[in-house]
Simulated scan of single mutants.
Amino acid sequence: MQKNKGFTLIELMVIIAILAIVASVAAPSFVGFLKAYKLNQAKEQVIQALKDGRSKAAANRAFVVVCPSKVKDGDVISKDKCLENANVSAADKQTFQDSNRVVIANLATGVEVSGDTYFVFGPTGTSLDSVSNKVPKAKKIVVCSESKTKEIEVTVLGNVNLKNSGVCS
């Protein structure tokens, strides 16, 4: 007599039921993990853009402007809008763009920022109020995703620090 190899229909249904139970238990924690991952990626994008901007400013001995790609209420920030926010004159905008002195932090869908929406680094890498007003100024930006936030601070000397976490307002 030949022996059949394989699974019966009952055995397959039991396995599928067990997998469904395991998946339903794991799904909520996986969704939370994805939300936290999205926020951390956005935070890292902003921090990297700020550090790139500071190092470009110090290396080229020139002003560099850094902006996030989106701000609160979903407004998309272009290089032109970024330079406009930083009080760069219309005559100087093209010079900034041609010499690659505008850094945009590209943020994923569903991520917004509030607080300071542009950062100006001076020729020594210090944080300034704006290109026209060269007063040293510490600034901070709040990255928000799925009602959780990460706060990033740029000191007067241009150092980038991660501050508090909280809830979006």
Rank of each mutant, 00 (worst) to 15 (best):
I47T: 10
R101Q: 15
I104C: 06
D75M: 13
V71G: 14
K140T: 13
D92K: 06
V111R: 07
K38H: 05
A105V: 10
P28I: 06
A138L: 02
K139E: 07
M1C: 03
S99V: 02
T155V: 02
F119A: 01
Q97R: 12
L107Q: 00
A62S: 03
I47C: 05
K139I: 09
K70G: 10
V65T: 00
L12E: 02
Q2R: 15
K163W: 08
N85P: 07
A23K: 08
T126H: 15
S24D: 07
S99K: 06
L128T: 01
L162E: 14
N85W: 13
I77A: 00
S169R: 11
I18M: 12
N4T: 11
E153I: 08
A91I: 15
V135P: 04
N164H: 02
Q94E: 10
I18E: 04
E112R: 01
K43C: 08
S78P: 01
K150S: 07
V64L: 04
G125L: 00
L107M: 02
K38A: 05
R61I: 04
S130P: 06
K163T: 11
A36T: 11
V131I: 04
T149H: 06
N100F: 11
N106K: 15
T155N: 03
E151T: 07
S169A: 13
V156S: 05
V113E: 07
K5G: 12
M1F: 05
